[in-house]
Amino acid sequence: MSETNPAPTVASAEDGLLDYADAITGVSVTIPSYAGFTAGDVVELHWGGTSVTEPYTVPQGEGEQPITLTIPWETIQAAGDGEAIPVHYTVTDRAGNTSAPSQAVDLTITNQT
């Protein structure tokens, strides 16, 4: 697991700006297929330096479909607004090898109250 995996995508923030109105219901983050994608891999999504979802285990038969996970509003709110927050993921294979963090997408929360 030495390659850097591709960055996740956030459809509601393609320009890197995530509006409060879009964030309040949670933010869907899509993790693209990555090199060596295998059933049994465990994917962890990170908001800044914090793991923000329960680890996701790739099920048997899922193939190389993108994975969509949701960052809860409470995590977004706690991080505040105005500063770019890197969002990335790590993958641990069945042998226990954990990848380097994926490429990150930087999100800035706007208009948070």
Rank of each mutant, 00 (worst) to 15 (best):
E3R: 13
E3P: 15
E3F: 15
N5S: 11
P6Q: 06
P6M: 08
A7N: 00
P8V: 06
P8T: 01
V10H: 09
V10D: 08
V10T: 04
A11Q: 14
A11G: 05
S12M: 09
L17C: 10
L18M: 05
L18E: 01
D19C: 02
D19Q: 14
D19G: 12
D22G: 14
A23Y: 07
A23T: 05
T25E: 14
T25Q: 07
G26M: 10
V27R: 02
V29A: 06
I31K: 10
I31Y: 04
P32K: 12
A35W: 09
G36T: 13
F37I: 06
T38Q: 05
A39K: 07
A39N: 07
A39W: 02
G40R: 08
V43P: 03
H46P: 00
W47E: 08
G48S: 01
G49P: 02
T50N: 15
T50A: 15
S51A: 15
S51N: 15
V52G: 13
T53K: 11
T53I: 10
T53N: 12
T53R: 05
E54V: 15
P55W: 11
P55S: 09
Y56G: 10
Y56R: 05
Q60E: 15
Q60M: 10
Q60V: 10
G61R: 08
E62M: 14
E62V: 13
G63Q: 03
G63H: 05
G63C: 05
G63D: 04
E64C: 10
E64Y: 12
Q65W: 14
Q65F: 14
Q65N: 15
I67R: 03
I71E: 10
I71S: 11
P72W: 10
P72M: 00
P72L: 11
W73I: 04
T75K: 12
I76V: 15
I76Y: 02
A78G: 07
A78I: 12
A78V: 08
A78R: 07
A79T: 14
G80W: 07
D81W: 11
D81V: 06
E83T: 11
A84E: 04
I85E: 00
I85K: 05
P86S: 03
P86T: 01
V91I: 04
V91R: 01
D93H: 06
D93W: 01
R94N: 14
G96I: 04
G96N: 00
N97E: 13
N97Y: 08
T98K: 04
T98L: 00
S99V: 00
S99L: 01
P101Q: 02
V105L: 10
L107Q: 07
